[in-house]
Nucleic acid binder design. Structure first.
Length: 464
RNA sequence: GGCCACGUGGCGGAGUGGUUACGCAGCGGACUGCAAAUCCGCGUACGGGGGUUCGAUUCCCUCCGUGGCCUCCA
């Protein structure tokens, strides 16, 4: 195919939100491809919508490792463990405790749950999983730089980013400043010089988590929402890096503001070369929301489905497309996985099928990749199918266990079934079809499905 | 209101300026005493209306519908 380069690998193309175009991927340094993805704010169980970026960028991570070598890729996915929502949660969940103690319990518990969820989903651990609270020093440093360069100012113990100080603010979300100011519908805090200015640092109330403040502010404070990602990506990937990912909802304001902070702090024209955003998820045709009662956590789904099935179900749609999360879709995904595992043959040297790699290299075209996998079910493709399943993070074990557990327990023991099968074989030998069919029907009523094989034997399995 | 996506056969879901992926379901056939399982085959779709073009599902305009963002939601 024309897409295959001299290395034997297809050209990797990724859609870049910054340019609104699919582009050939060229790393800043092929010796170390660097990717940052916005991880969760740990205040509550992750919901199925949170699982989408984690799975999508896990796939990209696997692909990058395949292309550049595992030791030449650095993937950073953060944990945001300082946030107003965490504080609010801590108060309601542990009302008797000291706030800071309550907060650490909330974050520790939520983070552990998140990790359990991801393991079930077959998601690889990123190379670094930094926490916001461990990077307060870098946040202060960034803020000091922004104040020094005139991109930020102090007001009433807050530090605010001055949006008008950055002439080309808004490139990522393509929102000209004029439009935003005209459409602003938010209450503007009185200490803001401009309605669009956003908080880099804010004072802590008594009892709240607080750190010594930058920019000469006397009272303790805590970071605003966006600064933590600028600090953590800087600390672990440098001033500029290759790929920055997250959900489409983060384009504005979160990523736009990250770009503003990092570019102004480093006097740089670019923060990350490629910005990738996954589409939203709906549940049974409706927007997922707590008020509609269709808010589903990963944890809840894992009670009924193996993580493997959730993973495939997520990848059935292209990552930039909206996805409608349905039980019907999950059933179909489970069936597909079972077919694949049934058809695959272990290989001593597992590797993904070239056609699958080519599909994935084209901006992670997972539906195309899945179609290619269906074509591997015949004899010639069985080993490639096994290699592809492994590459994509699918394991047979959990699915098999789930299938077995899902099969209703039978009221009859194997010996009885075998005896009745023997009885039926005898009846068939005598061409007594009435007796044969009666035995088959009786066993079926007990949940036992018979199969008459070509070689004359009869085998059975629990009815699905 | 502003900005931005999306709308493909019964369902899910790619893709393409002209030879119409793939899966599920359905139907037909093979196999079977009959079934089941399996295998083989079949279904000619691109929201409405204009336009560009020899030709549009694919490009442009418009309308309708769904969804997202517009300061802390992936």
């Amino acid at each position: 195919m024309s897409g295959i380069s001299g290395s034997g690998l297809p050209e990797l193309k990724l859609y870049n939100t910054l340019t609104r175009a699919k582009e050939g991927f060229v790393p800043l340094d092929a010796g170390l491809v660097r990717m940052y993805v916005c991880g969760p704010t740990v205040y509550d169980h992750a919901h199925i919508g949170n699982a989408r970026p984690v799975i999508v960028f896990d796939l990209l991570y696997r692909l990058l490792r395949h292309f550049y070598g595992a030791e030449h890729v650095k993937y950073v996915r953060n944990i945001t463990d300082v946030d107003d929502k965490i504080n609010a949660r801590a108060v309601t969940e542990f009302p008797g405790l000291d706030l800071n103690e309550a907060i650490s319990r909330v974050t520790a518990k939520t983070e552990a749950q998140f990790h359990d969820d991801l393991e079930a989903l077959g998601v690889l651990h990123p190379d670094v999983e930094p926490r916001a609270t461990e990077h307060i020093g870098q946040m202060r440093e960034l803020i000091e730089r922004l104040v020094a360069s005139g991109n930020a100012y102090v007001a009433e113990d807050h530090v605010l980013f001055s949006v008008p100080s950055m002439p080309d603010y808004g490139q990522l979300s393509r929102r000209p400043l004029d439009d935003m100011i005209a459409g602003a519908r938010v209450d503007v805090a009185p200490y803001k010089k401009d309605a669009m200015d956003f908080v880099l640092w804010k004072p802590s109330k008594p009892g709240e988590p607080g750190w010594s403040s930058p920019a000469g502010i006397a009272v303790p404070g805590r970071p605003g929402w966006h600064i933590e990602c600028s600090a953590m990506s800087w600390a672990h990937l440098g001033e500029t890096f290759d790929i920055h990912g997250g959900g489409i909802d983060l384009v504005f304001p979160h990523h736009e503001n990250e770009v503003a902070q990092s570019r102004c702090a480093f006097h740089s024209g670019i923060m990350a070369n490629v910005w990738m955003h996954n589409g939203f998820l709906q549940v049974e045709g409706e927007k997922m929301s707590k008020s509609l009662g269709n808010f589903i956590t990963i944890n809840q789904l894992l009670a009924d489905w193996p993580g493997q099935v959730l993973r495939l179900n997520m990848l059935k749609s292209h990552y930039r497309q909206p996805i409608d999360w349905t039980v019907k879709g999950l059933e179909e995904s489970a069936k597909t996985l079972e077919q694949w595992f049934d058809a695959s043959a272990p290989d001593a040297y597992p590797r993904p099928a070239p056609a699958v790699l080519e599909a994935l290299a084209d901006d992670l075209n997972t539906p195309k990749a899945i179609a290619e996998m269906h074509g591997l079910k015949d004899h010639a493709g069985k080993k490639a199918l096994a290699g592809t399943l492994a590459f994509l993070g699918f394991e047979a074990g959990p699915l098999r266990e789930w299938t077995a557990a899902r099969t209703p327990t039978l009221d009859v023991d194997a010996a009885t079934v075998e005896a009745r099968i023997a009885e039926r074989i005898e009846a068939r030998r005598n061409r007594d079809w009435a007796a044969s069919d009666r035995i088959r029907d009786e066993l079926l009523a007990l949940g036992v499905a018979l199969k008459d094989n070509k070689d004359g034997t009869t085998t059975w399995e629990p009815k699905r």
